[in-house]
Write a protein that binds this DNA or RNA. Structure first.
Length: 423
RNA sequence: GGAGACGUGGCAGAGUGGUCGAUUGCGGCGGUCUUGAAAACCGUUGAGGUUAGUAGCCUCCGGGGGUUCGAAUCCCUCCGUCUCCGCCA
């Protein structure tokens, strides 16, 4: 959510930058500012009325003590009138505030000035590409074939017990997943992230806090009986740990990591995108989150990106980094980098991480502020990134490392798997 | 799930209708004293809105609603915590 003060002061610039995200509903911004004007005016009227009524009520107390009943009764009448007036003003103010709030929630975050215009992933900018793509021969198999051949993942049984997009990992497939979890969590710990294990279900307020609601309602699994949502990423519970908090500047940065299962409805996906592990309804991920001083968030973003790259390098996977264009940058993000690994048998790049700076957008929604040394308060900046998502890493590992009759496990994972080959 | 108790400022804990945004203690910050520190003493110390403003004014005692001239204090409701019972990984 944008700060109303910021919107008031930089309206034209904001409209211009939102166009980069293909947000062209400028009428909504005019409406918000108009409502803001009304809000402040009504607030002022209400304050004055309440002040008068309060003064009058206090005077009555005094008159009662002095046994001046007639004067007290007179004052009561006056106060009753004032009360009626303030009640009306209060209702009007609530109405205006609610409308304004609702509209504000629908305005996306302003993209960073370096974000290029664009409509789709084709307009993303290649920042970096590194690593050696493996030689691919004709008998190279895609990961879903390998998973079957080596009995690592059972997609059909997943369909039976739940539905498509809910695979069952087995044997060395399951152990490899466990190895990834430990490797990613240990690495994050070493990089200074405090480990947490959050709930996988969150309430509505948390969904609004990080910006999934109301924008992505329908993408999350919802449990109506309790009005809970299954988390689409650990970003939601972790960042919301700091909702409604005022953090001392000297305690920054706050750094957390968490492993969690993630649940996404992925309505509308189809074709090769959902084949095998490429896109699932339930998957595993280690997420990293930081809460930082506004002056340091872009520096932090680069640091997080470099950390993520280091993981991919340790896994010996060829990768590339993209800066997302406006059209591909999510509702809540100001700047996002995607990290993709090359999956040899499919001959395609798979997104395994997305790291974003949300600036004050989430902090504003969830009232997460920092207190500076001179006692001033301002919204913090929040960031998060996948470090990393398991399924596509697994897909690339299987496809890229296949040899005659076996698959080689990268050296860094052998400590965790206790096997060198899948055979 | 059933019965009962309770939710007050960073924490502890008063206040049960009238200048209470709230006694007090601890913690934090500033000062006196000290070579320095501790102790002691003095002062200060929540959040939001409006505003050029660290001036004034208004709002906030779990959330929402109600009674009243006036509510932290009474009523309703929701949420949460605790105790006992039941169930249970």
């Amino acid at each position: 959510m944008l700060q109303i003060q910021y919107l008031r002061d930089h309206k034209d610039e904001i409209i211009k930058r939102l166009a980069v995200k293909n947000f062209k509903d400028t009428a909504i911004i005019d409406q918000v500012l108009e409502l803001d004007q009304q809000r402040r005016e009504t607030q002022r009227q209400l304050d004055d009325t309440l002040a008068e009524s309060k003064k009058s009520a206090k005077a009555i107390g005094q008159l009662m003590k002095e046994n001046k009943k007639d004067e007290a009764d007179k004052a009561k009448e006056k106060t009753t009138e004032l009360k009626q007036k303030s009640k009306e003003l209060q209702e009007r103010l609530n109405d205006i505030t609610n409308k304004q709030q609702k509209l504000l929630l629908d305005i996306p975050n302003v993209p960073h000035e370096s974000v290029p215009a664009g409509n789709s992933e084709d307009d993303n900018i290649l920042i970096k590409e590194d690593g050696t793509k493996p030689e691919v021969s004709k008998d190279h198999l895609p990961h879903w074939e390998l998973a079957k051949k080596f009995n690592l993942i059972d997609f059909d049984q997943g369909v039976k017990i739940t539905g498509a997009g809910f695979p069952v990992y087995k044997n060395k497939g399951a152990r490899l997943q466990r190895a990834l979890q430990s490797f990613f969590l240990d690495s994050a710990l070493e990089a200074g992230y405090d480990e947490v294990q959050p709930p996988l279900l969150v309430n509505e307020a948390s969904g609004y806090g990080t910006g999934q609601l109301p924008d992505k309602d329908g993408q999350m699994y919802h449990i109506p009986a309790d009005n809970f949502y299954l988390i689409p990423t650990a970003e939601v519970p972790i960042t919301n740990l700091y909702r409604d908090m005022i953090v001392d500047e000297k305690d920054l940065p706050l750094k957390n990591s968490a492993y969690s299962a993630c649940f996404r409805r992925e309505a509308g996906s189809y074709g090769k995108d959902v084949r095998g592990l490429n896109r699932l309804h339930q998957f595993d991920k280690v997420e990293i989150v930081q809460v930082v001083h506004p002056g340091k968030s872009y520096e932090t973003l680069e640091g997080m990106l470099n950390y993520i790259i280091s993981l991919v390098e340790k896994l010996e996977l060829p990768y590339r980094v993209l800066k997302l264009c406006g059209g591909d940058t999510s509702f809540a993000a100001a700047l996002t980098y995607d990290v993709e690994v090359f999956s040899a048998a499919q001959n395609r790049w798979l997104e395994v991480s997305s790291v974003s700076n949300f600036e004050a957008f989430q902090a504003n929604r969830m009232k997460l502020r920092i207190k500076t040394e001179d006692g001033k308060k301002q919204p913090a900046h929040t960031l998060n990134g996948s470090a990393l998502a398991f399924p596509r890493i697994l897909a690339a590992l299987l496809e890229n490392n296949q040899q005659a009759g076996k698959i080689k496990v990268p050296r860094v994972l052998v400590n965790y798997t206790n096997f060198e080959y899948i055979d």
